[in-house]
Design a protein around this nucleic acid. Structure first.
Length: 921
RNA sequence: GGACGCUUAGCUCAGCUGGUUAGAGCACCUCGUUUACACCGAGGGGGUCGUAGGUUCGAAUCCUACAGCGUCCACCA
């Protein structure tokens, strides 16, 4: 890794110069990105097992692991994926350069229902009416598998385009054989522990896609509903209300509040009213959940079609019977009178209202706002139906297995809910941003049993076998004849819940509670970075699965990014036409620019806005860095890979090294803490302001900067690499790379070497900048011709650092001053003041430029007067503050000293401005 | 109904545990073809930090209430 003894300096320099000249003036990402990615991939360095030892031969020991949230194989990557990729690659590349064994494991998600729905849609567009029926299970699945395969390929290609340094040799798919073994094993274990059971419960049913849904897949949509107040029949003594009269055929009770005097006499009695031609058996029950203020204070209880009613029914003794009146097709079933059978719920609702009206039973109709449960996917209404399904029991007590790792005590009684809660409460899993932990706990508190069986075809088949009434759980078909595998598939989140450990070899690499291979090396993972919208769907379920199966958390930190919105803050959607396709903008502006625009200004949990304008800004920045490199290559003929920190020769050298050190320290510290936006901003400020605008300009003046420029540029490239890998790697190849196989990607992260500029250096440099700015300002306001050099006089204030000859030359050049007359504090007596001059203040330093005739004396006077007024006002404010006895008595010594200094400076400034004003007369 | 978050320059946002004469980028105005960069450089204008109280020597920063916006959860049959 040493280049010190390369070619003789001169020829190396010449080569460099011509190389720089050969570089185009503008960086063109299109020409280099694909080739760079191909070289990275070919190097094998994405695989942590191939990473080189550290300097001094030290082995990499500490792992750093991220599991890529597998994108759904439903199409193409969107800007949300690109955001995740940029953030994860940033963390991975930083930690790789820091010397860790960095593993970023990629993959894709079969996404069961989402993919099947997508393919059904495509087949319908192609003319099929009912693809599932027309094709049959086997043929239909072939179509889905084919689609998923294509989609998977596209996604992997797109992930490469984004520059993701993930280990493709370990790529996983949620629906491959290894993941299937994990799913089956988990199902068996949980079944053995009584945590998975088959039961008759009320489930969410999607009549359109003909499948159950979990609670999290159901959303509430506000709608206007007709709220009917009526009686079942003339003789029934209680008036009830409902927005869904069609379900009343399934009523088995009327519930009232136990303290409601109006109905107390009826409680416990059973009636047999006839509702729209159907004889009901209705018990009047008391339940504290009933709100006596709402409606009539009495409600018809329909245990078959409402989870809440079902809960109420279960609390009764004896338990209320369940009468199902709606079928899986979303239509009234045979349990209702003939005239209603086969009607959709909507049709039945209208018909019943009319019937009640005709019979004189309808007392009132009111339009009310109501939240209707609809499918998260598709938006169609969801029915609650009683069905026999498989459930994960969140509240069931069980005994922790003996072969878990013992982060939780083996053999103890617990519940899945408690495991999920404790993982975060104990601090073993940290959620960023922290406020999401509350949301997480709240979700756990409200969690019901999780229905995991789905009636769709694409997915992991439930590992259970039926023969008549017999059921056997297991991946293998039981011996004997007549066994049929359960036709249902598992909720896609059941399989993705095991993502962090199934991808590392579980269960094969987990014998008797001992982790082996990758599982031992990389689990628990370090960070799980994903969108905040899947906190419940996925984060919570991974914690559940991992703590249950391994007794170990899946990751130490869950980092949740917000939604990416358009520049007006709207969600991106096809219908709005405001979608930003990461690949399209990468093509236009370069991948690095896209990545920067997704990382800078992005804080965990908060939505962020993105626009082409913003990406364009970062494209400009990549070009800026490119040109900084071009400049360094041209102006430093001895450019070479630095072996250590060079010896600074001038004030500017000491200053830039100190600034670089501070930048390295701050950027490293932030990235360690997973603060990802601020370090990018810190770096940008350093690169653009300190380095390009000041140091490089000074380097042109001072010269002899080969070592300094080599050192600073190489550090800057390393610091930027995790943020914008392509342009930095490309520059590296043209500058410091020892050969084709020497990648910046595995260069070691810079270390702050300790401040080299003391406080007086920093102060002197700041003063230099202020003086330059003041002169430029004077020239600009007095419209001095651009090329014209004017004599300049600088009178340092009482607190100013001495300005040396070398610095005067810098000031003169940067500010295009002519001769500079300068005097340090207390040495200005002999120095002449110009006759005709424009004057200004750089802090307490007076700056005058000699002018033949002022452009506008009145304007100049007004300008100085304004400046004086501000200074005078500040003097007043500060004086008042320091005259305040309470302030002087209570504020800390340091603050008081600081305020005194500010007052003194302001006074000095005001005095000098007074003199300047006088001189104008 | 409950919880959480946001409200700082025309726009997008920084301002960590209270002490800056309140910052950046974009946009805007003026000037500039100086051999890294016009995907650039130099200079400039622009904010009583949502409102009202409170704590404090001192509040954009802490507390309370209110308003507006947003998100999540629950859901009254």
């Amino acid at each position: 890794m040493s280049t010190e003894n390369a070619a003789p300096e001169e020829s190396a320099g010449a080569a460099q110069e011509s190389a720089a000249a050969a570089l185009p003036k503008a960086y063109d990402p299109k020409l280099v990105e694909d080739a760079i990615y191909a070289r990275w991939e070919a190097s094998g360095l994405f695989n942590p097992d191939n990473l080189p030892d550290l300097e001094g031969g030290k082995k990499r020991s500490e792992p750093f692991t991220i599991m890529m949230p597998p994108p759904n194989r439903t199409g193409i990557l969107h800007v949300g994926h690109a955001t995740g990729n940029a953030l994860q690659d940033l963390m991975i590349r930083f930690n790789r350069m820091r010397g860790k064994r960095a593993l970023w494991l990629p993959g894709t998600d079969h996404a069961a229902i989402a993919t099947q729905v997508k393919v059904e849609g495509i087949l319908r567009e192609q003319g099929m009416k009912n693809p599932r029926r027309e094709l049959g299970r086997e043929k239909f699945l072939e179509e889905v598998v084919k689609f998923a395969a294509d989609s998977g390929k596209t996604i992997v290609m797109q992930t490469r385009k984004m520059g993701a340094s993930c280990d493709w040799s370990r790529e996983a798919y949620t629906f491959d054989d290894a993941r299937n073994r994990a799913v089956n094993r988990l199902f068996e274990m949980m079944h053995e522990d009584g945590l998975i059971e088959r039961g008759d419960r009320i489930v969410n049913w999607d009549p359109k896609f003909q499948t159950t849904l979990s609670d999290d897949e159901v959303e509430m949509k506000e709608t206007v509903a007709r709220f009917l107040t009526f009686k079942y029949d003339r003789d029934f003594p209680i008036v009830i209300s409902s927005t869904r009269p069609e379900t009343k055929f399934g009523d088995t009770a009327v519930a009232v509040h136990p303290d409601d005097a109006r109905y107390a006499a009826f409680v416990g009695k059973t009636f047999t009213p006839t509702f729209c031609g159907q004889k009901l058996t209705v018990r009047v029950i008391a339940d504290r959940e009933v709100d006596p203020e709402f409606g009539t204070g009495a409600l018809g209880v329909t245990p078959a079609h409402s989870m809440i009613d079902a809960d109420m029914a279960a609390r009764q003794s004896p338990v209320l019977p369940t009468v199902q009146v709606i079928g899986t097709d979303g239509c009234m079933n045979d349990a209702v009178p003939e005239e209603y059978r086969g009607l959709t719920v909507k049709e039945a609702r209208v018909k019943i209202e009319a019937a009640l009206q005709a019979a004189g039973l309808l007392i009132a109709v009111e339009e009310i706002k109501q939240n209707l449960p609809v499918a998260e996917r598709g938006g169609m209404p969801v029915e609650q139906l009683p069905m026999k399904q498989w459930f994960v029991r969140a509240n069931k007590e069980f005994t922790l297995r003996q072969d878990t790792l013992g982060m939780w005590k083996k053999g103890e009684r617990t519940t899945l809910k408690d495991l999920m809660r404790e993982a975060v409460q104990s601090g073993q899993v940290k959620i960023m941003p922290e406020q999401f932990e509350k949301v997480y706990f709240h979700w756990i508190d409200n969690l019901r049993d999780w229905c995991i069986s789905r009636q769709i075809w694409f997915g992991h088949r439930v590992p259970a076998w039926h023969r008549g009434e017999e059921i056997v759980v297991g991946a293998e078909k039981p011996s004997g004849d007549g066994w049929e595998q359960d036709p249902d598939t598992l909720d896609t989140w059941f399989s993705s819940g095991s993502w962090t450990f199934s991808t590392l070899g579980w269960p094969d690499k987990y014998a008797g509670g001992v982790k082996e291979g990758d599982l031992a090396k990389f689990h628990p993972t370090d960070v799980l970075e994903t969108g905040r919208d899947i906190l419940f769907f996925w984060i919570a379920r991974m914690i559940l699965m991992s703590t249950y199966a391994l007794g170990e958390v899946p990751f130490k930190t869950a980092y949740l990014h917000g939604l990416v919105r358009d520049e007006q803050g709207r969600k991106m959607s096809k219908s709005l036409g405001n979608i930003i396709d990461p690949l399209v903008v990468s093509e236009k502006f370069g991948t690095d620019a896209v990545r920067l625009s997704l990382v800078l200004g992005n804080s965990p949990g908060n939505d962020m806005r993105i626009s082409e304008e913003k990406i364009g800004y970062f494209r400009n920045f990549t070009n800026k860095l490119w040109n900084i490199a071009r400049f360094v290559m041209m102006s430093a003929p001895g450019l070479a890979r630095p072996s250590g920190r060079p010896e600074p020769k001038t004030l500017a050298d000491r200053w830039i090294l100190a600034r670089l050190d501070a930048t390295i320290a701050s950027v490293s510290d932030d990235l360690e803490k997973l603060v990802l936006s601020r370090p990018g901003e810190t770096l940008r400020d350093f690169t653009w302001n300190d380095l390009a605008d000041w140091y490089l300009e000074i380097a042109k003046i001072e010269g002899g900067k080969d070592e300094m420029l080599s050192y600073v540029l190489s550090a800057v490239l390393k610091l930027w690499h995790p943020f914008m890998p392509f342009v930095t790697e490309e520059i590296w190849a043209h500058t410091f790379a020892a050969g084709k196989d020497d990648f910046l990607m595995v260069a070691e992260w810079p270390v702050a070497t300790g401040a080299v500029a003391d406080e007086s250096d920093a102060k002197r440099f700041t003063k230099l900048q202020e003086i330059v700015t003041t002169i430029r300002n004077l020239r600009s306001t007095h419209k001095v011709e651009p090329g014209k050099r004017v004599d300049t006089y600088v009178f340092c204030g009482s607190d100013d650092a001495f300005i040396a000859e070398g610095e005067l030359k810098i000031i003169a050049t940067l500010a295009k001053a002519g001769q500079i007359h300068a005097a340090a504090c207390g040495k200005s007596e002999g120095m002449p003041r110009p006759q005709h001059a424009a004057s200004g203040m750089a802090g307490t330093t007076e700056v005058l430029i000699s002018l033949e005739g002022l452009v506008d004396p009145a304007a100049e006077k007004a300008r100085l007067q304004k400046e004086y007024d501000e200074a005078a006002k500040y003097v007043e404010v500060q004086s008042r503050k320091l005259d305040n006895a309470d302030f002087v008595a209570r504020a800390p010594e340091k603050v008081i000293a600081l305020e005194r200094q500010k007052l003194a400076d302001a006074k000095e400034k005001a005095e000098k401005l007074t003199a300047q004003l006088d001189a104008l007369k």
